[in-house]
């Protein structure tokens, strides 16, 4: 087991390395020179070629690509994300506040999806073909086929504009104003969680249905076990595997979805930070945010892989 964990950790580190390299190279291929954009913003100064060259030097853009890459990566390992080329702020500090906001929303969404999704799936599997099953199926189809921003727009229109129940946009941290935070979180969390809820519910439904047809479940019924015990002890436990497998992908979807959701609800999180930086062609910010987002995904994949052994003791790590 411990060798497996070490190997898996090593694998994760390699993935982070490759991702950082890919992102670094992709961003160097971007058209548009950040220094030129910086100069274009400060028109009140007279720029001589020597000054531009000095500025480029001070930002470290004159070094060779490998040097730039290793400097960036080794700085990041020490928790230093460097300084934004365009706006001269410390990326690490900015990132910290954005990560907190995104994490709050992401964790809430994940928690909601991991509770509601399997629950809906189990209900619709048990009541297969009944009214509630159809309702869940339709809900799941909407969750999978409707674009997030559209669901967000619909909900804003309904709950914020027509019924005036919830704020339209913004985010407040819970320790600043808990009530406002909850009211502001409801819509974004629901929109982010909807896709994962739908996928998880569908997966749960089919895997529960499969387990319900197994011999040992029939035996459990036959020996007169009560419904709750059969479902919790035999059915749920044995249908957990595919649901756990799915959760890594779901977290990745939540992280990616934050970009759109944060934009719609004007939430100052990582996603919005990323899009703004992208539009401003702020290399260093984009590459750092991407690496942080990927890190979250890689860690969640790692946790899912380790959970396998707990969920399914038959799996041998070697």
């Amino acid at each position: 087991m411990s060798t497996y964990i070490i190997r898996r950790l090593f694998h994760s580190v390699i993935i982070i390395l490759i991702v950082s390299l890919i992102v670094f190279l992709l961003l160097r291929a971007l058209p548009g020179d950040p220094i030129m954009m910086l100069i274009a913003q400060n028109t009140n100064m007279e720029w001589t070629p020597e000054m531009i060259e000095a500025l480029r030097d001070s930002k470290g853009l004159n070094d060779s690509l490998p040097v730039q890459y290793f400097r960036w990566f080794s700085m990041m390992l020490r928790g230093d994300f460097g300084v934004s080329i365009m706006h001269n702020y410390n990326i690490g500090e900015q990132l910290k506040s954005k990560v907190v906001v995104s994490m709050m929303l992401g964790i809430c969404s994940f928690a909601v999806s991991i509770i509601v999704g399997p629950l809906l799936g189990i209900i619709s599997a048990i009541r297969r073909g009944k009214f509630i099953d159809n309702v869940v199926t339709i809900f799941a189809n909407i969750g999978i086929t409707a674009p997030q921003f559209w669901i967000a727009i619909l909900l804003i229109f309904l709950f914020s504009m027509r019924l005036q129940l919830l704020p339209i946009y913004g985010y407040t941290l819970p320790w600043v104003n808990l009530g406002l935070c909850i009211r502001q979180s409801i819509l974004p969390v629901f929109v982010t969680a909807l896709g994962p809820i739908a996928s998880t519910a569908r997966q749960t439904r089919s895997s529960v249905l499969e387990v319900l047809g197994e011999d040992y479940v029939r035996t459990a019924w036959a020996k007169g076990m009560n419904e709750r015990k059969v479902l919790m002890k035999h059915v749920l436990k044995n249908s957990l595997m595919p649901i756990v497998t799915l959760q890594g992908t779901m977290l990745r979807q939540i992280v990616g979805g934050s970009v759109v959701v944060e934009r719609v609800f004007v939430i100052p999180g990582m996603g919005k930070f990323m899009v703004d930086a992208m539009q401003g062609r702020d290399y260093t910010v984009v590459q750092s945010v991407t690496v942080v987002m990927t890190l979250v995904v890689v860690i969640s994949y790692l946790i899912v892989d380790l959970l396998y052994g707990w969920v399914d003791p038959r799996i041998q790590y070697d």
Partner: peptide, 16 residues
């Protein structure tokens, strides 16, 4: 590695 980056982020980088 590529599948660890959220899809939308990859697309964002490429469109950029």
């Amino acid at each position: 590695a590529i599948t660890s980056i959220p899809n939308l982020i990859i697309s964002l980088l490429i469109v950029g």
